[in-house]
Design a binder for these strands. Sequence first.
DNA 1: TGGATTTTGTATCACTGATACAAAACTCTG
DNA 2: CAGAGTTTTGTATCAGTGATACAAAATCCA
Lengths: 200, 200
Amino acid sequence: MGRPRQRTPELREKILDVALDLLAVDGPSAVTTRAVATAAGTSAPAIYELFGDKSGLVRAVFFDGFRRLRDRFAELPPPQGTPADLLAVIDAFRDFTRENPRLFEVMYTKPFAVYAPAPEERELGDATRSAFVDRARSLVQADQLHGDAVDIAHGVLGLVVGLATQETAGFLGATAEDCDRRWRGAAESLLRGYGVDSNA
Amino acid sequence: MGRPRQRTPELREKILDVALDLLAVDGPSAVTTRAVATAAGTSAPAIYELFGDKSGLVRAVFFDGFRRLRDRFAELPPPQGTPADLLAVIDAFRDFTRENPRLFEVMYTKPFAVYAPAPEERELGDATRSAFVDRARSLVQADQLHGDAVDIAHGVLGLVVGLATQETAGFLGATAEDCDRRWRGAAESLLRGYGVDSNA
DNA sequence: TGGATTTTGTATCACTGATACAAAACTCTG
DNA sequence: CAGAGTTTTGTATCAGTGATACAAAATCCA
């Protein structure tokens, strides 16, 4: 008995969808509690009941971004045991950041002052690591790359995060050809460098 | 005649110093117009007279960051014509980001919703490019690296921005040794990879 | 000393995140 | 079927932010 509930898990998803949409279209400054609530057909306090506070909403966006990225990686063809396996992950990562630049920024930079992921949140949400680490490990075991697989994965992730940051900000190059060439050259060079046994 | 001026270029510098300090100590959310003005011994409208608006203040912080980074690069020993020249720039860049993590974020990510550098501002403020590009060009001419020097510089810059982003956020590694090893491994591998003539 | 002039800081606005609480919406009993 | 009882919701409000109009302050000169 009592007034029927409207602040359901379904409304939570609706709010999250609206937040993702506002973020993608008009950027972080458009994601205000009032704007999100109104566009979702409810009022601001619903966000606080369903997400705790605004940082909870941004956190949900953050996790959803990593879920989508994981789905993207899951569509990749099975690894063949060559460095091209890692190049495929790099390409998929880049495609994702070009299609979802604001979402990428929420995941890897901190456009919202109210939310910075704690290390454990980062690990939970980070689907990236395993895609990189698993392939790096296979390649190290196959003697195609040399060094610690986790170190290599962090290096590759560092490169792609940096290139994507520069590209989404418009500073990687003026033309698509410039950006393509720089992505490809850097990715191939890094893997080539990891392929050399520096202790040999 | 009239009331003596207080909103002088000296006060502008004072305000900028205060903003840099508040940013470094308490992060972007501590840089409010009131807090900066009070700490500088003036009132909020002075900021608007001297900087236009808050994004103007953040822009000044942005430029000051690149000035400091350029000074850091200027202290580097003269290039010797080996890939170690670029490794030295990479090390100096990393040192800078570890000593000024919030400032680095203002320069390369967008922690303030109100300010994103326009491409021409980025080029003006970017002392990074020439330090990387000049050395890359020398190494390409000396046949130590292969490819376009500007492309290589963008690739190296991408790597260091990404690694620094991850490190300042605490996601590059749990210990200093982890971070050191991953920086070194990635930097050396990338340069090693650029050293191979992929068209040969 | 007091008018004229320039500069400053206070008071205020719109908007944001956040929340208290009265109105709304429903169930069930007498 | 009226209305008490219960639960939920959205409105009204608060403090803090970026921004600005304008009265008060501070000076100079007649």
